[in-house]
Design a protein around this nucleic acid. Sequence first.
DNA 1: AAGGACTGCAACCGCAGGTGA
DNA 2: TTCACCTGCGGTTGCAGTCCT
Length: 269
Amino acid sequence: MEEYEQNSVIPTNDEDSDVRKGPWTEEEDAVLINYVSVHGEGRWNNIARFSGLKRTGKSCRLRWLNYLRPDVRRGNITLEEQFLILKLHSVWGNRWSKIAQYLPGRTDNEIKNYWRTRVQKQAKHLRCEVDSSLFKETMRNVWMPRLLERIHAQSSASTCQTGESAVTEPSRPVFAPTSEPGLDQFMSADQQFMASEFSAASSNSLETQFSTFPDQGHVNGSGLDPFQSGLDELCDWSYSGDEVEKLWKDDSFWSLQDQLCDQTSYSYN
DNA sequence: AAGGACTGCAACCGCAGGTGA
DNA sequence: TTCACCTGCGGTTGCAGTCCT
């Protein structure tokens, strides 16, 4: 398990090209930040070559994009972001960088990690594959509605409270226009369009915003749009408030699996 | 208190596509 | 057209912190 030692310098035949691997030090971060601030992003091999860092261009790029970039957001993935990840993954699959484009400040690596650690864990609990129909049904019929309920609950709670006295953690809508200076410049035209859509939808429901998703026109061989059908099912979701509340109080997916099996057997029979 | 199991995440690797000489 | 180099992406690994027994 000695793939690499912390901060090790791997010697090579060419002593000029010894390459450092492993976690970055504060000094290395400072060098990279300084170099990028002067010369800009891109040309990562040149950055690696001329900055004095004994790192590969790839490593510099990764460190910058995933950690040092000023607009990188760290911390817990919000409910809205979770919902978006699930939804976008249902459209695009493991296209992490594409998904990340619609979660400003989040990196593809972070989303990929989220998927692997949280989503795949749930699949494991359900004893099914992440790409199995059972798990997809669970996501669509249980998990995502739960997220929506929590988002609604959170937003209504925050509107009942004023300013800093909010009890629930205020979570900024993912696409809501931000007052942070300079963030808009990182958003593509599509994203800014999405931002306005999200903003407009946030006062009504999260469902409506997804009617404007890009690429949702992809249809499968049967002519059905899986995105739209999933959306329809989502909007048709008909648990009562009490049932939802019960779901919320049950953090285990074991009982949800039973409910899902009942539901899916009903809907497919 | 100790140590084994689990979890989250940073960072690496290989591959593929793009680009320019 | 070909080849070398660069960049970006997705998959994987392994360390460090936390949890559990």
